[in-house]
Computed example of a mutant assay.
Amino acid sequence: MSHAQRERLAYIDFRLYFMGEIGRPDLASRFGVAPAGATRDLALYREIAPQNIEFDGSSKIYRIGKEFGSLFNHIPQRVLSALSLGFGDGVNGDAWPMLPCESPAVLSSPRIEVLASICRAIHAKRPIAVRYHSLSRGDSDRVIVPFALVDTGLRWHVRAFDRKSSEFRDFVVTRIEAPTLVDEEPKANERPENDIQWTRIVELDLVPPPRLARPEIIRMDYGMADSSIRMRVRAAFADNMLLRWSVDASPDHSLREEQYRLWLSDPLALYGVENAKLAPGYQAPAAKTAHK
């Protein structure tokens, strides 16, 4: 079975699982195959998993079988993206939602030409010269050595070595202008394996705050198997992740606002994280001792 045919069978499986039906036009319009080719794919799927699919002769459409069992592993994030945004590959123009969906508006999107230049630099393992706009340091020309993109949930960042400060930092992609590839190899100290905050993995144990009367509801919300969520994240972005998830990082779960439905049960997990102060309610261990 070719890769292209597997993709079409996965789409049949997806449509049956989440829409309950699929017709030849659905397959033909998604992949640009002829009706005869769509018929062959549907017949092959039916041969492989006859319990999954039933043909409705009155409407000439295939419907989900009563004993359906998915043949493919459909990842929830991708499923929700497809349902809310549609399938898009940049060729067929606009993609439309498959079901009525509402989601928060994206207020910060990188300019595509800037993003493309950064991606090429990461892939080629080359520095880029940029004009960067910083709230605290103003505008400056810099040469950075990027190696990863990071989505914080609010903005896209690029992790890079900054030759101006001789440090590894994260840069907001929307604040970058005029990226130009520098055709030279990065120096040894500029490579990602030397970024301590990037290579260090922080283990976070997230639990319902003790103040909640119905912690079992929070455990249901997050699919907690054993009363907590154990996450492993890079120290460089642990603060952003806790901010994104609205996690109370105070040592005594003191944040009472409704949005804080999770508590970092061991705030000392953030010890040594450079930007830990951005985590909601976080107190440095020294400050906690002085307060006592």
Results as ranks from 00 to 15, higher is better:
H74Q: 00
L85H: 14
W156Y: 11
V182D: 00
D162L: 05
R131P: 03
G88A: 08
F87R: 10
V158E: 03
G93R: 02
L83A: 01
K60V: 13
P186E: 06
P192K: 13
P110S: 02
H133T: 15
L71Y: 03
R191I: 15
G69I: 03
D170K: 11
V130R: 08
N194F: 07
P146D: 05
S136G: 02
R126F: 07
H157C: 09
G153P: 01
S103Y: 15
C101F: 14
I75Y: 00
H133L: 13
P100M: 10
V79N: 06
I112V: 09
I128L: 10
L149S: 07
S134E: 05
G86F: 05
I61N: 03
S117K: 15
I75A: 00
A188I: 12
R131Q: 08
G138H: 04
K66N: 12
K60H: 15
E177K: 11
L135W: 12
V150T: 09
T180S: 10
S166T: 13
R191D: 10
R163F: 03
L80G: 03
V173M: 03
F68G: 02
D141K: 13
V150I: 14
R126S: 12
H74S: 01
F147G: 08
G69F: 03
D170H: 09
E193D: 14
R163C: 05
R111A: 14
T174V: 10
L115H: 06
I176Y: 02
C119K: 15
N73V: 12
P192C: 07
R163A: 08
R126Y: 08
T180V: 13
R155T: 13
I64F: 00
P146K: 02
A129C: 06
V106K: 07
V145F: 00
T152G: 07
D162Q: 00
P97E: 03
L85N: 12
R159Y: 00
T152F: 01
R137F: 11
I144L: 01
G88M: 04
S59L: 12
L181P: 05
S165W: 06
S70H: 07
D94C: 09
N92I: 03
T180M: 10
A105G: 14
A121T: 09
I61D: 03
K164E: 00
S103Q: 12
R159G: 01
F72V: 05
K125S: 15
T152W: 04
D170S: 11
V114S: 07
P192H: 09
A105S: 11
A116F: 13
S166L: 08
G138C: 03
E102R: 10
C101I: 08
F147A: 05
N73P: 00
I176H: 06
N194A: 07
H133W: 14
F161N: 06
L85Q: 14
I75R: 01
L85Y: 11
R169E: 05
A124T: 08
I61R: 13
H133I: 15
S81D: 15
V172L: 09
S117L: 00
N189G: 01
A178C: 01
R137M: 07
E184V: 07
C101H: 13
I122L: 06
S136P: 04
K125I: 15
G65T: 05
F147P: 04
L154G: 11
P97W: 02
Y132Q: 04
C101T: 15
P104K: 09
N73W: 02
S117D: 07
